[in-house]
Design a protein around this nucleic acid. Structure first.
Length: 434
RNA sequence: GGAGAGGUGGCAGAGUGGUCGAAUGCGGCGGUCUUGAAAACCGUUGAACCGCGAGGUUCCGGGGGUUCGAAUCCCUCCCUCUCCGCCA
């Protein structure tokens, strides 16, 4: 990463509130109190910058003198000699300032975002807190199968062929299930664009380093991503291109919020997930997802998280799939999040709720990284960094799993949720292929 | 892939080595006029950083170079546009 990438924390704030910073950062696993280290690096940086500035001030003044003297036809050789003398000192002072800045930024770039105060403490998923529940898990009069058995019996879910073509953690859907995936995406996008005010986007699936840095995948999590030979990265979520739409912009507050949705393929290397969810299509290298991204002001972001989460929950309610919503504890949140709600759909085969959506508010963390700002009032000079949010609504593959498992029937067929039937040409049930 | 033209403030668009951080227009802000608004007119208005302040530093696509001095000259990369070729 270039050294001049913006840091994601307000170092001035850390300087003024070191205890608060340390308390907050330590709620993250593996993080230690480090405000004193940061403040020291910052101090070093500012000393170096000041020195470099002083030297440059002198040089600039002399150079200007030369210009004036030359215009008057005077001899300038002695002034030029004077400037040349200080050249070495200037170069080394500049180098020192650049190095000091890079040192500080390198430390800051690896730090996760600070949890909001109302986020529960905890180190892992066992500390997450359920906040609401919707729907009654269905009572089966037979032993419910898992989505792999259901899909293969339908003759519409083929892991073997996908493995032949690509390897582990890929699947090939066929016939009715391929159609259902498309229908689900269509239904979700229709709802988000027509009812929820999101603008549909069809973004690039390959992005550059800067975009990945902006949303926080880089520099720390390159091993979770796929990279292609040209140097591009395959997006792990549409959050990356959608959020980066605002990168580098300075907008008026009236232009916010901006709400974007997209269905894209998501690509994840799943490094470090060895042995986890190996069966079936819960954890794949490639999956499709309908993503929501909101770009808001500081004051609006907390409410926007509630709104976004409701948009995601609404999809499950329309599909009549039981779910629960939990708030993640500080230790279980993603790198860039300040607060996260996970929505978990009921999976009868596991007798458990499993993640199908994750909605997060990132505060100004990403806004800082991508230098995206807004003016709070027209005519007011001061700008602030935008606040960003992202959420899945929903992960399409996992939604398909939830439908298969919740709507399965004893004879191996699968009923199609009422609201989805319209998107499948009126089809009401998927029957096994003979 | 070949040939050419470009990338400058919130936006548009001048500027080809020395008070240029940058003309002008739009937009924004303040005012005059108006019952109010619009129009017109006058004034004002780039950003980030350092500093208590005075003030200073950086920024004209990214990076490097030449020079006492670079928006301006050189190298390199990226992007956009036009034409040609190829192609879903």
């Amino acid at each position: 990463m270039p050294a001049d990438y913006r840091s994601m924390f307000d170092i001035k704030w850390i300087r003024e509130n070191p205890e608060a910073f340390d308390l907050a950062i330590q709620r993250r696993p593996g993080q230690t109190a480090m405000s004193s280290q940061l403040i020291e690096l910052d101090h070093k940086k500012r000393i170096a910058e000041t020195l470099a500035q002083e030297i440059k001030t002198k040089r600039n003044a002399l150079s200007k003198e030369i210009g004036v003297a030359k215009a008057l036809g005077k001899d300038v050789a002695h002034i030029i000699a004077k400037v040349s003398e200080s050249k070495n000192a200037q170069v080394s002072a500049e180098m020192e300032a650049i190095t000091a800045k890079a040192e500080l930024n390198n430390v800051l770039a690896d730090l996760p975002n600070l949890p909001l105060e109302d986020v529960p403490d905890g180190v892992g998923e066992e500390d997450n807190v359920e906040i609401r529940k919707w729907g009654e898990p269905r009572a089966f009069d037979f032993v419910p199968k898992d989505h792999v058995d259901i899909g293969e019996r339908l003759g519409m879910m083929d892991f073997e062929t996908a493995a032949k073509l690509s390897g582990a953690r890929f699947v090939m859907l066929k016939g009715g299930l391929a159609q259902m995936e498309r229908a689900l995406g269509n239904m979700m996008l229709n709802i988000h664009t027509r009812d929820n005010g999101y603008t549909e986007v069809n973004p690039p699936a390959l992005v550059n380093d800067a975009s990945m840095f902006g949303t926080g995948q880089l520099p720390k999590f390159g091993q979770d991503l796929f990279k292609v030979e040209s140097g591009h990265w395959l997006i792990p979520t549409a959050e990356v291109p959608l959020t980066n739409i605002i990168a580098g912009h300075l907008v008026d507050a009236e232009q916010l919020p901006q709400r974007y949705t997209a269905m894209t393929w998501c690509f994840r290397s799943e490094a470090g997930a060895a042995g986890k969810d190996t069966r079936g299509m819960i954890r794949q290298h490639q999956f499709s997802k309908v993503e929501l991204v909101s770009i808001t002001t500081k004051d609006a972001s907390s409410l926007e998280l509630e709104r976004m989460t409701r948009c995601a929950e609404d999809i499950l309610e329309r599909l009549e799939i039981p779910y629960r919503t939990i708030v993640l504890c500080a230790g279980d949140m993603g790198f860039g999040a300040r607060k996260t709600y996970d929505i978990e759909a009921w999976l009868p085969s596991q007798g458990a709720y499993r993640e199908i959506s994750s909605c997060s508010v990132c505060g100004d963390f990403q806004g800082r990284r991508m230098n995206a700002r807004y003016r709070s009032k027209k005519g007011i000079k001061e700008s602030q960094f935008v606040h960003t949010l992202n959420g899945s609504a929903l992960a399409v593959g996992r939604t398909l799993i939830a439908i298969l498992e919740n709507y399965q029937q004893a004879d191996g067929s699968v009923a199609i949720p009422r609201e989805l039937q319209h998107f499948m040409g009126g089809l009401e049930v998927l029957e096994p292929v003979q």
